[in-house]
Amino acid sequence: MNWPATERHCLSPAPGGLALVQELLNTAPAGRPGPADLPDLLGDGALGAAQEWADLAVRGWAGETGRPDVHLVLTEEDLPKLRCLRDQVRRALAAGGGGGGDAVRFTSAPVVVGLAGDGTLTVEPEGAGARWLASAALAEGLLAQASGVWRRLKICRNPSCAAAFYDRSRNNSGVWHSVRGCGNAAHLRACRERRRVRA
């Protein structure tokens, strides 16, 4: 289990390093009230769960990108920073990356761009704790934008779900992480509303 936050939604991870961004987004709480709720893996007082999540997610990222595993040590001070980063990435995805409008300054983080002996460029995260995770997530987002796959990382349109999913549809038209679950619920609500309006 390399992507525990994404797997708890029964989703497939995004390809390559973009899975780390999806994984960060899926640490958010989700679900309707009741026993099926998914807790916030980065919530206040959840340092143990956050550290366990980070260990697995970073190991998954290292495996997907061919980099060495990095052991991060998170602190209580890192949790609000990671939640802020998560919320900012969510807003960026919701904005669609179209530019224009009011510019909002989001989190920034340092990266090292290196030139390998074979002429390839690499982007390596810098920092420790939340700073390293921000650096890695933003670097993967930048690489995904450059390769044209950033637009396929989406947030489920069902507000009580809001899972981050990678849209594998041919025309990039997916809006729910699960057509059977969240999609059916939305269609039922719309059908009931149309009946109510007609009545």
Rank of each mutant, 00 (worst) to 15 (best):
R157K: 00
S135E: 12
A136E: 01
T120Y: 14
L121Q: 09
Q145C: 08
H187E: 04
L153K: 06
C191Q: 13
A162D: 09
C191L: 03
E124G: 13
R151Q: 03
R194A: 01
A137L: 10
R168T: 14
A190I: 08
A137E: 11
R168Q: 14
E140Q: 07
R170L: 06
V175M: 02
S178N: 13
Y166A: 10
A134F: 13
W176F: 13
G183C: 12
G174P: 09
K154G: 01
A134G: 12
P125M: 03
A130H: 02
Y166H: 08
Q145I: 12
Y166W: 15
L188V: 07
N172T: 01
N171Y: 13
D167V: 04
S135Y: 12
H187V: 06
R168I: 11
W176G: 06
G174N: 00
G127H: 11
R152V: 05
C191H: 11
A130E: 09
P125C: 02
A186G: 10
R157G: 00
R157V: 00
W150A: 10
N184T: 15
R157A: 09
G174V: 14
E126Y: 03
R151A: 11
A146R: 00
A162R: 04
N184F: 15
R194P: 04
L142N: 08
V149K: 04
G148C: 02
K154I: 13
S178G: 08
G183F: 04
R151F: 15
R168W: 15
N171D: 13
A146S: 01
A162F: 11
E140A: 06
A163F: 01
N158P: 07
R157S: 14
W176I: 07
R131D: 05
N172F: 06
A136W: 13
C156N: 10
G174F: 15
A164G: 08
V123Q: 02
E126R: 10
E124L: 15
G129K: 05
R170A: 03
R168K: 11
L153E: 04
A163R: 02
R157N: 03
